[in-house]
Design a protein around this nucleic acid. Sequence first.
RNA 1: CGGGGUGUAGCGCAGUCCGGUUAGCGCGCCUGCUUUGGGAGCAGGAUGUCGGAGGUUCGAAUCCUCUCACCCCGACCA
Length: 569
Amino acid sequence: MRVSQFFISTLKEAPAEAELVSHRLMLRAGLIRKLGSGLYTWMPLGLRVLRKVEAIVREEMNAAGAVEVLMPAVQPAELWQESGRWQVFGPQMLKIKDRHDRDFCFGPTHEEVITDIARREIRSYRQLPVNFYQIQTKFRDEIRPRFGVMRAREFLMKDAYSFHTTFEDLQREYRNMVDAYTRIFTRLGLGFRAVAADTGAIGGTGSHEFHVLAESGEDAIAYSTGSEYAANVELAEAVAPSAGRGAPTQSMQKIATPGAHTIEEVSALLKVPAERIVKTLMVVANDGTELLLLLRGDHMLNEVKAGKLAALASGFRFASEGEIRARLGTGAGSMGPVGANLTIVADRALLAVSDFVCGANADGFHLAGVNFGRDLPEPAEYADIRNAVAGDPSPDGKGKLDILRGIEVGHVFQLRAKYSTAMGATYLDEQGQSQPMEMGCYGIGVSRIVAAAIEQNHDERGIIFPDAMAPFRVALVAIGYRKSEAVKQAADALLAALTAAGIETLLDDRDERPGVMFADMELTGIPHRVTIGDRGLKNGELEYQHRRDAKSQPIPAAEAASWLTARLG
RNA sequence: CGGGGUGUAGCGCAGUCCGGUUAGCGCGCCUGCUUUGGGAGCAGGAUGUCGGAGGUUCGAAUCCUCUCACCCCGACCA
Protein backbone atom coordinates (compact mmCIF):
# COMPACT_ATOMS: atom_id res chain seq x y z
CA MET A 1 0.00 0.00 0.00
CA ARG A 2 1.11 3.51 -0.78
CA VAL A 3 0.38 6.43 1.49
CA SER A 4 -0.65 8.43 -1.57
CA GLN A 5 -3.46 5.94 -2.21
CA PHE A 6 -4.31 5.25 1.42
CA PHE A 7 -5.67 7.75 3.89
CA ILE A 8 -3.72 8.84 6.89
CA SER A 9 -4.67 11.84 8.94
CA THR A 10 -2.37 12.65 11.81
CA LEU A 11 -2.56 15.48 14.31
CA LYS A 12 0.28 17.35 15.94
CA GLU A 13 -1.93 18.27 18.84
CA ALA A 14 -4.53 16.01 20.35
CA PRO A 15 -8.05 17.34 20.92
CA ALA A 16 -8.38 18.76 24.41
CA GLU A 17 -10.92 16.14 25.49
CA ALA A 18 -8.41 13.29 25.41
CA GLU A 19 -6.69 12.55 28.68
CA LEU A 20 -5.51 8.99 28.61
CA VAL A 21 -2.36 8.38 26.58
CA SER A 22 -3.94 5.71 24.39
CA HIS A 23 -6.89 7.97 23.64
CA ARG A 24 -4.60 10.86 22.70
CA LEU A 25 -2.43 8.68 20.52
CA MET A 26 -5.36 7.02 18.78
CA LEU A 27 -6.73 10.44 17.90
CA ARG A 28 -3.37 11.87 16.92
CA ALA A 29 -2.46 8.86 14.79
CA GLY A 30 -5.82 9.06 13.06
CA LEU A 31 -6.97 5.61 14.18
CA ILE A 32 -10.30 6.87 15.42
CA ARG A 33 -12.47 9.98 15.26
CA LYS A 34 -15.20 10.85 17.69
CA LEU A 35 -18.77 11.19 16.51
CA GLY A 36 -20.41 11.73 19.89
CA SER A 37 -19.91 10.80 23.52
CA GLY A 38 -18.73 7.19 23.55
CA LEU A 39 -19.17 6.88 19.77
CA TYR A 40 -16.18 6.52 17.49
CA THR A 41 -15.50 6.03 13.81
CA TRP A 42 -12.69 3.62 13.06
CA MET A 43 -10.60 5.33 10.43
CA PRO A 44 -8.76 3.25 7.79
CA LEU A 45 -5.59 2.83 9.80
CA GLY A 46 -7.44 2.04 13.02
CA LEU A 47 -9.79 -0.36 11.30
CA ARG A 48 -6.83 -2.40 10.07
CA VAL A 49 -5.71 -2.76 13.69
CA LEU A 50 -9.20 -3.69 14.86
CA ARG A 51 -9.46 -6.29 12.10
CA LYS A 52 -6.14 -7.83 13.11
CA VAL A 53 -7.36 -8.31 16.65
CA GLU A 54 -10.66 -9.64 15.40
CA ALA A 55 -8.92 -12.12 13.09
CA ILE A 56 -6.77 -13.55 15.85
CA VAL A 57 -9.75 -13.87 18.15
CA ARG A 58 -11.70 -15.60 15.39
CA GLU A 59 -8.88 -17.98 14.52
CA GLU A 60 -8.37 -19.05 18.10
CA MET A 61 -12.07 -19.41 18.79
CA ASN A 62 -12.43 -21.58 15.72
CA ALA A 63 -9.37 -23.57 16.72
CA ALA A 64 -10.90 -24.10 20.15
CA GLY A 65 -13.99 -25.61 18.57
CA ALA A 66 -16.43 -22.72 18.85
CA VAL A 67 -18.74 -21.98 15.93
CA GLU A 68 -19.45 -18.50 14.68
CA VAL A 69 -22.89 -16.94 14.37
CA LEU A 70 -24.09 -13.36 14.01
CA MET A 71 -27.07 -12.26 16.05
CA PRO A 72 -29.11 -9.10 15.59
CA ALA A 73 -27.87 -5.98 17.32
CA VAL A 74 -31.48 -4.97 17.96
CA GLN A 75 -33.45 -7.25 20.23
CA PRO A 76 -37.14 -7.42 21.14
CA ALA A 77 -38.06 -6.49 24.71
CA GLU A 78 -40.02 -9.71 25.21
CA LEU A 79 -36.86 -11.77 25.48
CA TRP A 80 -35.51 -9.52 28.19
CA GLN A 81 -38.79 -9.51 30.06
CA GLU A 82 -38.69 -13.28 29.98
CA SER A 83 -35.25 -13.44 31.60
CA GLY A 84 -36.22 -10.70 34.02
CA ARG A 85 -33.45 -8.39 32.89
CA TRP A 86 -35.53 -5.75 31.09
CA GLN A 87 -35.78 -3.90 34.40
CA VAL A 88 -32.63 -5.24 36.06
CA PHE A 89 -30.27 -4.01 33.37
CA GLY A 90 -31.59 -0.54 33.91
CA PRO A 91 -30.56 2.66 32.19
CA GLN A 92 -27.40 1.08 30.83
CA MET A 93 -29.62 -0.49 28.21
CA LEU A 94 -30.56 1.66 25.25
CA LYS A 95 -34.26 1.08 24.74
CA ILE A 96 -35.91 1.95 21.46
CA LYS A 97 -39.35 1.68 19.90
CA ASP A 98 -40.25 0.72 16.37
CA ARG A 99 -43.00 2.29 14.26
CA HIS A 100 -45.59 0.07 15.91
CA ASP A 101 -44.54 1.40 19.29
CA ARG A 102 -43.08 -1.97 20.26
CA ASP A 103 -40.14 -2.04 22.65
CA PHE A 104 -36.67 -3.07 21.59
CA CYS A 105 -33.20 -2.55 22.87
CA PHE A 106 -29.85 -2.18 21.19
CA GLY A 107 -28.18 -5.29 22.55
CA PRO A 108 -25.76 -4.72 25.43
CA THR A 109 -25.11 -8.49 25.47
CA HIS A 110 -26.72 -11.56 23.95
CA GLU A 111 -27.49 -14.19 26.60
CA GLU A 112 -31.21 -13.89 25.89
CA VAL A 113 -30.91 -14.19 22.14
CA ILE A 114 -28.55 -17.14 22.21
CA THR A 115 -30.65 -18.90 24.83
CA ASP A 116 -33.64 -18.42 22.58
CA ILE A 117 -31.67 -19.99 19.72
CA ALA A 118 -30.66 -22.87 21.94
CA ARG A 119 -34.17 -23.64 23.12
CA ARG A 120 -35.49 -23.62 19.55
CA GLU A 121 -32.69 -25.58 17.96
CA ILE A 122 -31.39 -27.95 20.61
CA ARG A 123 -33.64 -30.79 21.65
CA SER A 124 -31.33 -33.71 22.36
CA TYR A 125 -28.23 -34.39 24.41
CA ARG A 126 -26.81 -35.63 21.11
CA GLN A 127 -26.57 -32.00 19.96
CA LEU A 128 -24.49 -31.00 22.99
CA PRO A 129 -22.07 -29.59 23.82
CA VAL A 130 -21.89 -26.63 21.51
CA ASN A 131 -20.20 -23.25 21.78
CA PHE A 132 -21.59 -20.36 19.68
CA TYR A 133 -19.71 -17.11 19.32
CA GLN A 134 -20.00 -13.86 17.45
CA ILE A 135 -17.94 -10.73 16.95
CA GLN A 136 -20.35 -7.88 17.00
CA THR A 137 -21.13 -4.32 17.97
CA LYS A 138 -22.71 -3.83 21.37
CA PHE A 139 -24.19 -0.75 22.94
CA ARG A 140 -24.15 0.02 26.65
CA ASP A 141 -25.28 3.44 27.76
CA GLU A 142 -22.44 3.90 30.23
CA ILE A 143 -22.86 6.30 33.16
CA ARG A 144 -19.71 8.00 32.07
CA PRO A 145 -18.11 7.02 28.78
CA ARG A 146 -14.44 7.98 28.82
CA PHE A 147 -10.96 7.27 27.58
CA GLY A 148 -11.99 6.92 23.93
CA VAL A 149 -12.66 3.34 22.87
CA MET A 150 -11.51 2.12 26.29
CA ARG A 151 -14.93 2.78 27.76
CA ALA A 152 -17.08 3.66 24.81
CA ARG A 153 -20.83 3.19 24.61
CA GLU A 154 -20.70 1.44 21.26
CA PHE A 155 -17.94 -1.11 21.09
CA LEU A 156 -16.89 -4.31 19.39
CA MET A 157 -17.07 -7.46 21.44
CA LYS A 158 -16.53 -11.14 20.93
CA ASP A 159 -19.08 -13.03 22.96
CA ALA A 160 -19.38 -16.78 23.14
CA TYR A 161 -22.00 -18.97 24.80
CA SER A 162 -21.60 -22.66 25.44
CA PHE A 163 -24.27 -25.22 26.24
CA HIS A 164 -23.75 -28.51 28.09
CA THR A 165 -25.51 -31.47 29.58
CA THR A 166 -23.45 -31.47 32.78
CA PHE A 167 -21.62 -29.07 35.04
CA GLU A 168 -18.48 -31.16 34.54
CA ASP A 169 -18.65 -30.60 30.82
CA LEU A 170 -19.21 -26.89 31.36
CA GLN A 171 -16.09 -26.81 33.52
CA ARG A 172 -14.15 -28.59 30.78
CA GLU A 173 -15.22 -26.02 28.20
CA TYR A 174 -14.52 -23.21 30.66
CA ARG A 175 -10.93 -24.40 30.93
CA ASN A 176 -10.84 -24.75 27.17
CA MET A 177 -11.86 -21.11 26.84
CA VAL A 178 -9.35 -19.97 29.46
CA ASP A 179 -6.69 -21.73 27.39
CA ALA A 180 -7.98 -20.14 24.18
CA TYR A 181 -7.95 -16.70 25.78
CA THR A 182 -4.41 -17.27 26.98
CA ARG A 183 -3.39 -18.10 23.41
CA ILE A 184 -5.21 -15.05 22.06
CA PHE A 185 -3.57 -12.54 24.38
CA THR A 186 -0.21 -14.20 23.98
CA ARG A 187 -0.48 -14.01 20.20
CA LEU A 188 -1.48 -10.37 20.44
CA GLY A 189 1.78 -9.73 22.23
CA LEU A 190 0.22 -8.32 25.39
CA GLY A 191 1.33 -8.52 29.00
CA PHE A 192 -1.74 -9.90 30.77
CA ARG A 193 -2.92 -11.82 33.75
CA ALA A 194 -5.95 -14.03 34.37
CA VAL A 195 -7.55 -13.36 37.74
CA ALA A 196 -10.43 -14.76 39.74
CA ALA A 197 -13.36 -12.37 39.56
CA ASP A 198 -16.77 -11.49 40.83
CA THR A 199 -19.65 -12.53 38.60
CA GLY A 200 -21.42 -9.18 38.90
CA ALA A 201 -24.74 -8.66 37.16
CA ILE A 202 -24.41 -11.60 34.78
CA GLY A 203 -24.72 -14.15 37.54
CA GLY A 204 -23.49 -17.71 37.85
CA THR A 205 -20.67 -19.32 39.73
CA GLY A 206 -17.03 -19.41 38.57
CA SER A 207 -15.55 -16.46 36.79
CA HIS A 208 -12.18 -15.18 35.65
CA GLU A 209 -11.13 -11.89 34.15
CA PHE A 210 -8.24 -11.31 31.80
CA HIS A 211 -6.43 -8.06 32.41
CA VAL A 212 -3.88 -6.26 30.33
CA LEU A 213 -1.49 -4.85 32.89
CA ALA A 214 -1.20 -1.07 32.77
CA GLU A 215 -0.76 1.73 35.29
CA SER A 216 -3.82 3.48 33.93
CA GLY A 217 -6.03 0.42 34.37
CA GLU A 218 -9.42 0.99 35.96
CA ASP A 219 -9.29 -2.26 37.91
CA ALA A 220 -7.06 -3.26 40.78
CA ILE A 221 -5.75 -6.81 40.85
CA ALA A 222 -4.44 -8.52 43.94
CA TYR A 223 -1.84 -11.20 43.31
CA SER A 224 0.36 -13.28 45.51
CA THR A 225 4.10 -12.79 45.39
CA GLY A 226 4.50 -16.38 46.53
CA SER A 227 2.00 -18.33 44.42
CA GLU A 228 -0.21 -18.26 41.34
CA TYR A 229 -3.09 -16.68 43.26
CA ALA A 230 -4.57 -13.63 41.54
CA ALA A 231 -7.97 -12.02 41.92
CA ASN A 232 -9.76 -8.78 41.27
CA VAL A 233 -9.66 -6.78 44.52
CA GLU A 234 -13.45 -6.81 44.40
CA LEU A 235 -13.17 -10.51 45.14
CA ALA A 236 -9.76 -11.03 46.76
CA GLU A 237 -10.27 -12.27 50.28
CA ALA A 238 -8.80 -10.14 53.03
CA VAL A 239 -7.89 -12.92 55.44
CA ALA A 240 -8.75 -12.71 59.11
CA PRO A 241 -5.85 -11.65 61.33
CA SER A 242 -3.94 -14.57 62.81
CA ALA A 243 -2.99 -12.71 65.97
CA GLY A 244 -5.64 -12.31 68.65
CA ARG A 245 -6.79 -9.11 70.25
CA GLY A 246 -4.75 -7.52 73.01
CA ALA A 247 -6.35 -6.97 76.39
CA PRO A 248 -7.66 -3.47 77.10
CA THR A 249 -5.03 -1.21 78.66
CA GLN A 250 -6.87 2.10 78.49
CA SER A 251 -10.14 3.31 79.83
CA MET A 252 -12.63 4.87 77.48
CA GLN A 253 -12.64 8.64 77.38
CA LYS A 254 -14.40 11.30 75.35
CA ILE A 255 -12.08 13.73 73.57
CA ALA A 256 -12.93 16.97 71.82
CA THR A 257 -11.87 16.79 68.19
CA PRO A 258 -13.14 20.03 66.74
CA GLY A 259 -12.96 20.17 62.98
CA ALA A 260 -11.57 16.66 62.65
CA HIS A 261 -13.93 14.67 60.45
CA THR A 262 -11.77 12.36 58.40
CA ILE A 263 -9.59 9.52 59.57
CA GLU A 264 -6.53 11.50 58.50
CA GLU A 265 -7.59 14.54 60.48
CA VAL A 266 -8.40 12.57 63.60
CA SER A 267 -5.17 10.60 63.27
CA ALA A 268 -3.14 13.79 62.97
CA LEU A 269 -4.95 15.54 65.81
CA LEU A 270 -4.79 12.70 68.32
CA LYS A 271 -1.48 11.32 67.08
CA VAL A 272 -3.02 7.88 66.78
CA PRO A 273 -2.19 5.76 63.72
CA ALA A 274 -5.11 5.05 61.36
CA GLU A 275 -4.86 1.33 62.18
CA ARG A 276 -6.13 2.09 65.68
CA ILE A 277 -9.03 4.21 64.54
CA VAL A 278 -12.32 2.56 63.69
CA LYS A 279 -14.17 3.92 60.68
CA THR A 280 -17.96 3.80 60.95
CA LEU A 281 -20.19 3.69 57.89
CA MET A 282 -23.97 3.70 57.87
CA VAL A 283 -25.70 1.99 55.01
CA VAL A 284 -29.34 1.49 54.11
CA ALA A 285 -30.46 -1.65 52.34
CA ASN A 286 -33.06 -1.38 49.60
CA ASP A 287 -35.49 -3.20 51.89
CA GLY A 288 -35.04 -0.41 54.46
CA THR A 289 -32.68 -2.20 56.85
CA GLU A 290 -30.15 0.17 58.39
CA LEU A 291 -26.74 -1.14 59.30
CA LEU A 292 -23.47 0.12 60.74
CA LEU A 293 -20.29 -1.17 59.10
CA LEU A 294 -16.99 -0.90 60.95
CA LEU A 295 -13.58 -0.90 59.33
CA ARG A 296 -10.05 -0.24 60.43
CA GLY A 297 -9.22 3.38 59.63
CA ASP A 298 -6.62 2.52 57.01
CA HIS A 299 -8.93 0.09 55.20
CA MET A 300 -11.51 0.71 52.49
CA LEU A 301 -14.98 -0.75 52.29
CA ASN A 302 -15.43 -3.26 49.48
CA GLU A 303 -18.96 -2.67 48.27
CA VAL A 304 -19.12 -5.94 46.36
CA LYS A 305 -18.31 -7.88 49.50
CA ALA A 306 -20.66 -5.79 51.64
CA GLY A 307 -23.42 -6.50 49.14
CA LYS A 308 -23.08 -10.16 49.97
CA LEU A 309 -24.01 -9.65 53.63
CA ALA A 310 -27.36 -11.26 54.35
CA ALA A 311 -28.80 -8.00 55.66
CA LEU A 312 -27.84 -6.17 52.46
CA ALA A 313 -28.91 -8.84 49.99
CA SER A 314 -31.54 -6.51 48.52
CA GLY A 315 -28.82 -4.03 47.53
CA PHE A 316 -27.75 -0.99 49.51
CA ARG A 317 -26.64 2.63 49.47
CA PHE A 318 -24.84 4.90 51.86
CA ALA A 319 -27.03 6.67 54.38
CA SER A 320 -27.63 10.36 53.82
CA GLU A 321 -26.41 12.95 56.28
CA GLY A 322 -30.02 13.39 57.39
CA GLU A 323 -30.53 9.69 58.02
CA ILE A 324 -27.31 9.53 60.03
CA ARG A 325 -28.32 12.50 62.13
CA ALA A 326 -31.81 11.14 62.68
CA ARG A 327 -30.46 7.82 63.85
CA LEU A 328 -27.28 8.72 65.72
CA GLY A 329 -27.77 12.37 66.53
CA THR A 330 -24.52 13.40 64.92
CA GLY A 331 -22.95 14.17 61.57
CA ALA A 332 -21.01 11.70 59.54
CA GLY A 333 -17.67 12.93 60.81
CA SER A 334 -18.36 11.95 64.42
CA MET A 335 -20.47 8.83 64.17
CA GLY A 336 -19.44 5.73 66.03
CA PRO A 337 -20.61 2.32 67.22
CA VAL A 338 -20.74 2.99 70.97
CA GLY A 339 -24.34 3.29 72.08
CA ALA A 340 -25.61 3.09 68.54
CA ASN A 341 -28.93 1.31 68.42
CA LEU A 342 -28.17 -0.39 65.13
CA THR A 343 -26.98 -3.80 64.00
CA ILE A 344 -23.22 -3.70 63.60
CA VAL A 345 -21.12 -5.69 61.15
CA ALA A 346 -17.36 -5.31 61.61
CA ASP A 347 -14.57 -6.18 59.28
CA ARG A 348 -12.53 -9.13 60.51
CA ALA A 349 -9.46 -6.93 60.89
CA LEU A 350 -11.16 -5.54 64.00
CA LEU A 351 -10.81 -8.94 65.64
CA ALA A 352 -7.26 -7.82 66.42
CA VAL A 353 -7.95 -4.22 67.42
CA SER A 354 -8.18 -2.97 70.99
CA ASP A 355 -7.93 0.43 72.66
CA PHE A 356 -9.25 2.12 69.54
CA VAL A 357 -10.52 5.54 68.62
CA CYS A 358 -13.95 6.07 67.08
CA GLY A 359 -16.58 8.74 66.68
CA ALA A 360 -18.51 9.59 69.85
CA ASN A 361 -21.91 10.19 68.19
CA ALA A 362 -21.57 13.79 69.27
CA ASP A 363 -20.44 16.46 66.85
CA GLY A 364 -16.81 17.38 67.41
CA PHE A 365 -16.04 14.49 69.75
CA HIS A 366 -14.34 11.13 69.48
CA LEU A 367 -13.87 8.30 71.96
CA ALA A 368 -10.44 6.86 72.72
CA GLY A 369 -9.45 3.67 74.52
CA VAL A 370 -12.56 1.89 73.29
CA ASN A 371 -12.78 -1.89 73.53
CA PHE A 372 -15.29 -4.40 72.24
CA GLY A 373 -16.95 -6.47 74.94
CA ARG A 374 -16.36 -3.80 77.55
CA ASP A 375 -17.47 -0.42 76.19
CA LEU A 376 -19.80 -1.83 73.60
CA PRO A 377 -21.04 -5.30 72.72
CA GLU A 378 -19.22 -7.44 70.22
CA PRO A 379 -20.57 -6.75 66.72
CA ALA A 380 -23.40 -8.94 65.47
CA GLU A 381 -21.05 -10.30 62.87
CA TYR A 382 -17.44 -10.16 61.80
CA ALA A 383 -17.12 -10.44 58.01
CA ASP A 384 -14.73 -9.76 55.18
CA ILE A 385 -15.98 -6.42 53.92
CA ARG A 386 -12.78 -4.57 53.05
CA ASN A 387 -10.49 -4.34 50.06
CA ALA A 388 -7.38 -6.43 50.31
CA VAL A 389 -4.28 -4.26 50.45
CA ALA A 390 -0.64 -4.78 49.57
CA GLY A 391 1.06 -6.70 52.35
CA ASP A 392 -1.99 -8.76 53.33
CA PRO A 393 -1.30 -12.51 53.53
CA SER A 394 -2.33 -14.34 50.36
CA PRO A 395 -5.64 -16.19 50.86
CA ASP A 396 -4.01 -19.43 49.73
CA GLY A 397 -1.54 -19.14 52.56
CA LYS A 398 1.47 -18.70 50.28
CA GLY A 399 3.21 -15.36 50.24
CA LYS A 400 1.79 -11.88 50.51
CA LEU A 401 -0.51 -9.91 48.27
CA ASP A 402 0.57 -7.07 46.06
CA ILE A 403 -1.66 -4.86 43.93
CA LEU A 404 -1.37 -4.24 40.20
CA ARG A 405 -3.60 -2.23 37.92
CA GLY A 406 -5.18 -3.78 34.89
CA ILE A 407 -7.53 -3.19 31.99
CA GLU A 408 -10.20 -5.85 31.75
CA VAL A 409 -10.16 -7.22 28.21
CA GLY A 410 -11.74 -10.61 28.74
CA HIS A 411 -14.17 -12.23 31.13
CA VAL A 412 -15.35 -15.82 31.34
CA PHE A 413 -18.32 -17.04 33.38
CA GLN A 414 -19.95 -20.29 34.35
CA LEU A 415 -23.57 -19.27 34.11
CA ARG A 416 -24.91 -22.70 34.98
CA ALA A 417 -28.68 -22.91 34.37
CA LYS A 418 -29.68 -19.35 35.20
CA TYR A 419 -30.86 -18.39 31.72
CA SER A 420 -31.76 -21.83 30.48
CA THR A 421 -34.12 -22.26 33.43
CA ALA A 422 -35.62 -18.79 33.14
CA MET A 423 -36.19 -19.19 29.43
CA GLY A 424 -36.93 -22.88 29.18
CA ALA A 425 -33.83 -23.98 27.27
CA THR A 426 -34.01 -27.71 27.87
CA TYR A 427 -32.93 -30.90 26.15
CA LEU A 428 -33.87 -34.56 26.46
CA ASP A 429 -31.25 -36.72 28.15
CA GLU A 430 -30.53 -40.41 27.52
CA GLN A 431 -33.47 -41.33 29.71
CA GLY A 432 -35.78 -39.06 27.76
CA GLN A 433 -35.99 -36.65 30.66
CA SER A 434 -36.14 -32.90 30.07
CA GLN A 435 -33.16 -31.08 31.61
CA PRO A 436 -32.07 -27.44 31.64
CA MET A 437 -28.82 -26.83 29.81
CA GLU A 438 -25.68 -25.82 31.66
CA MET A 439 -24.35 -22.60 30.17
CA GLY A 440 -21.07 -20.75 30.02
CA CYS A 441 -20.36 -17.35 28.53
CA TYR A 442 -17.08 -15.83 27.43
CA GLY A 443 -16.44 -12.24 26.39
CA ILE A 444 -13.55 -10.34 24.87
CA GLY A 445 -13.52 -6.57 24.40
CA VAL A 446 -12.11 -6.43 20.90
CA SER A 447 -12.08 -2.65 20.48
CA ARG A 448 -10.85 -2.13 24.02
CA ILE A 449 -7.89 -4.38 23.31
CA VAL A 450 -6.59 -1.84 20.81
CA ALA A 451 -6.56 0.90 23.44
CA ALA A 452 -5.14 -1.43 26.08
CA ALA A 453 -2.33 -2.49 23.77
CA ILE A 454 -1.41 1.15 23.22
CA GLU A 455 -1.46 1.85 26.95
CA GLN A 456 1.09 -0.90 27.27
CA ASN A 457 3.12 -0.12 24.14
CA HIS A 458 4.00 3.49 23.47
CA ASP A 459 6.73 6.06 23.94
CA GLU A 460 7.04 9.83 23.62
CA ARG A 461 6.97 9.58 19.83
CA GLY A 462 3.80 7.55 19.60
CA ILE A 463 2.39 4.06 19.40
CA ILE A 464 4.55 0.94 19.21
CA PHE A 465 2.23 -1.79 17.96
CA PRO A 466 3.04 -5.42 18.60
CA ASP A 467 3.57 -7.04 15.18
CA ALA A 468 0.40 -9.07 15.50
CA MET A 469 -1.90 -6.06 15.57
CA ALA A 470 0.07 -3.45 13.64
CA PRO A 471 -1.88 -1.82 10.79
CA PHE A 472 1.15 -2.48 8.60
CA ARG A 473 4.22 -4.40 9.62
CA VAL A 474 6.74 -2.46 7.58
CA ALA A 475 6.92 1.24 6.77
CA LEU A 476 9.06 2.22 3.82
CA VAL A 477 10.19 5.81 4.11
CA ALA A 478 11.29 6.90 0.65
CA ILE A 479 13.24 10.11 0.87
CA GLY A 480 12.87 12.03 -2.36
CA TYR A 481 10.55 9.52 -3.99
CA ARG A 482 9.29 12.14 -6.43
CA LYS A 483 12.78 13.45 -7.17
CA SER A 484 15.10 10.50 -7.35
CA GLU A 485 14.56 7.75 -9.90
CA ALA A 486 16.91 5.50 -7.92
CA VAL A 487 14.88 5.95 -4.75
CA LYS A 488 11.63 5.40 -6.60
CA GLN A 489 12.87 2.21 -8.22
CA ALA A 490 14.31 0.80 -5.00
CA ALA A 491 11.18 1.68 -3.03
CA ASP A 492 8.75 0.30 -5.62
CA ALA A 493 10.76 -2.90 -5.92
CA LEU A 494 10.91 -3.45 -2.18
CA LEU A 495 7.20 -2.73 -1.77
CA ALA A 496 6.39 -5.25 -4.50
CA ALA A 497 8.73 -7.89 -3.07
CA LEU A 498 7.47 -7.56 0.50
CA THR A 499 3.84 -7.49 -0.61
CA ALA A 500 4.42 -10.61 -2.68
CA ALA A 501 5.92 -12.23 0.41
CA GLY A 502 2.74 -11.50 2.30
CA ILE A 503 4.23 -8.80 4.50
CA GLU A 504 1.89 -5.86 4.83
CA THR A 505 3.92 -2.84 3.87
CA LEU A 506 3.15 0.86 3.67
CA LEU A 507 5.29 2.93 1.34
CA ASP A 508 5.42 6.61 2.20
CA ASP A 509 5.67 8.03 -1.31
CA ARG A 510 4.49 11.50 -0.38
CA ASP A 511 6.43 14.54 -1.42
CA GLU A 512 7.08 15.34 2.21
CA ARG A 513 10.16 16.26 4.12
CA PRO A 514 11.84 13.31 5.82
CA GLY A 515 11.02 14.55 9.29
CA VAL A 516 7.31 14.58 8.53
CA MET A 517 7.40 11.02 7.22
CA PHE A 518 9.48 9.72 10.10
CA ALA A 519 7.21 11.38 12.62
CA ASP A 520 4.04 10.00 11.02
CA MET A 521 5.37 6.46 10.74
CA GLU A 522 6.50 6.56 14.37
CA LEU A 523 3.25 8.04 15.63
CA THR A 524 1.17 5.37 13.91
CA GLY A 525 3.22 2.64 15.52
CA ILE A 526 4.31 0.58 12.51
CA PRO A 527 6.93 -1.69 14.08
CA HIS A 528 9.49 -2.03 11.29
CA ARG A 529 10.88 0.79 9.21
CA VAL A 530 13.11 0.85 6.19
CA THR A 531 14.51 4.16 5.00
CA ILE A 532 15.32 4.45 1.32
CA GLY A 533 17.35 7.45 0.24
CA ASP A 534 20.01 8.45 -2.24
CA ARG A 535 22.53 8.75 0.55
CA GLY A 536 22.42 5.05 1.40
CA LEU A 537 21.68 3.89 -2.11
CA LYS A 538 25.03 5.28 -3.27
CA ASN A 539 26.63 2.57 -1.12
CA GLY A 540 24.04 0.01 -2.11
CA GLU A 541 22.41 0.26 1.31
CA LEU A 542 19.04 0.86 2.93
CA GLU A 543 18.48 1.48 6.61
CA TYR A 544 16.43 -0.70 8.90
CA GLN A 545 15.14 0.35 12.29
CA HIS A 546 12.68 -1.30 14.64
CA ARG A 547 10.30 1.08 16.32
CA ARG A 548 11.93 0.25 19.65
CA ASP A 549 15.50 0.67 18.35
CA ALA A 550 17.45 3.80 19.15
CA LYS A 551 19.40 3.74 15.88
CA SER A 552 19.07 2.35 12.41
CA GLN A 553 21.30 -0.28 10.88
CA PRO A 554 22.40 -0.52 7.26
CA ILE A 555 21.19 -3.45 5.18
CA PRO A 556 22.25 -4.30 1.61
CA ALA A 557 19.72 -2.86 -0.78
CA ALA A 558 19.88 -5.86 -3.09
CA GLU A 559 18.98 -8.27 -0.29
CA ALA A 560 16.59 -6.05 1.62
CA ALA A 561 13.50 -8.06 0.76
CA SER A 562 14.95 -11.42 1.74
CA TRP A 563 16.61 -9.91 4.81
CA LEU A 564 13.27 -8.54 6.01
CA THR A 565 11.32 -11.64 5.07
CA ALA A 566 13.70 -13.77 7.09
CA ARG A 567 13.63 -11.39 10.00
CA LEU A 568 9.88 -10.97 10.14
CA GLY A 569 9.08 -14.61 9.57
C1' C B 1 -27.34 11.11 39.47
C1' G B 2 -24.50 15.16 42.25
C1' G B 3 -20.56 18.84 41.67
C1' G B 4 -17.30 21.60 38.39
C1' G B 5 -15.71 23.23 33.61
C1' U B 6 -15.67 24.20 28.35
C1' G B 7 -18.11 25.42 23.58
C1' U B 8 -14.67 31.19 18.99
C1' A B 9 -11.59 28.33 11.54
C1' G B 10 -9.70 21.26 10.66
C1' C B 11 -6.57 21.03 15.69
C1' G B 12 -4.63 23.95 19.92
C1' C B 13 -5.92 28.54 22.00
C1' A B 14 -6.57 34.34 23.00
C1' G B 15 -10.55 37.82 23.14
C1' U B 16 -15.82 37.47 27.28
C1' C B 17 -14.84 40.12 33.68
C1' C B 18 -15.34 46.07 31.84
C1' G B 19 -20.57 45.52 24.98
C1' G B 20 -18.27 49.32 20.04
C1' U B 21 -16.78 49.48 13.77
C1' U B 22 -12.85 44.52 9.01
C1' A B 23 -12.95 38.58 15.55
C1' G B 24 -7.25 37.36 16.33
C1' C B 25 -2.72 34.01 17.10
C1' G B 26 0.06 29.19 16.39
C1' C B 27 -0.29 24.69 13.74
C1' G B 28 -2.73 22.66 9.58
C1' C B 29 -4.84 23.77 4.45
C1' C B 30 -4.31 26.20 -0.87
C1' U B 31 -0.85 28.81 -4.73
C1' G B 32 4.13 30.16 -6.24
C1' C B 33 9.38 30.14 -5.64
C1' U B 34 13.34 28.20 -2.86
C1' U B 35 14.56 23.98 0.12
C1' U B 36 14.98 18.40 0.78
C1' G B 37 18.00 12.59 5.87
C1' G B 38 14.05 14.43 11.72
C1' G B 39 7.62 18.01 11.98
C1' A B 40 11.47 23.80 6.28
C1' G B 41 11.94 29.30 4.49
C1' C B 42 9.85 33.44 1.97
C1' A B 43 5.64 35.62 -0.44
C1' G B 44 0.58 35.43 -1.29
C1' G B 45 -4.30 33.20 -0.11
C1' A B 46 -8.80 30.61 1.68
C1' U B 47 -11.66 29.11 5.88
C1' G B 48 -15.88 31.50 11.39
C1' U B 49 -24.30 30.70 11.76
C1' C B 50 -18.31 33.00 18.01
C1' G B 51 -22.82 25.62 20.09
C1' G B 52 -28.38 26.92 19.47
C1' A B 53 -32.89 29.90 20.57
C1' G B 54 -34.89 34.06 22.73
C1' G B 55 -34.12 38.72 25.18
C1' U B 56 -31.68 43.63 26.74
C1' U B 57 -29.26 47.52 23.74
C1' C B 58 -28.26 52.44 18.85
C1' G B 59 -24.84 48.22 18.90
C1' A B 60 -23.80 41.45 21.68
C1' A B 61 -18.49 36.44 20.94
C1' U B 62 -18.95 39.76 25.34
C1' C B 63 -24.82 41.17 29.47
C1' C B 64 -29.64 38.20 30.82
C1' U B 65 -32.92 33.74 30.25
C1' C B 66 -33.61 29.09 28.35
C1' U B 67 -31.48 25.10 25.80
C1' C B 68 -28.01 21.60 23.53
C1' A B 69 -23.32 19.29 23.30
C1' C B 70 -18.78 17.81 25.19
C1' C B 71 -15.14 17.13 29.14
C1' C B 72 -13.48 16.46 34.22
C1' C B 73 -14.34 15.02 39.36
C1' G B 74 -17.38 12.33 42.74
C1' A B 75 -20.71 8.58 44.04
C1' C B 76 -15.70 5.84 50.63
C1' C B 77 -16.16 12.68 54.92
C1' A B 78 -17.75 8.93 58.28
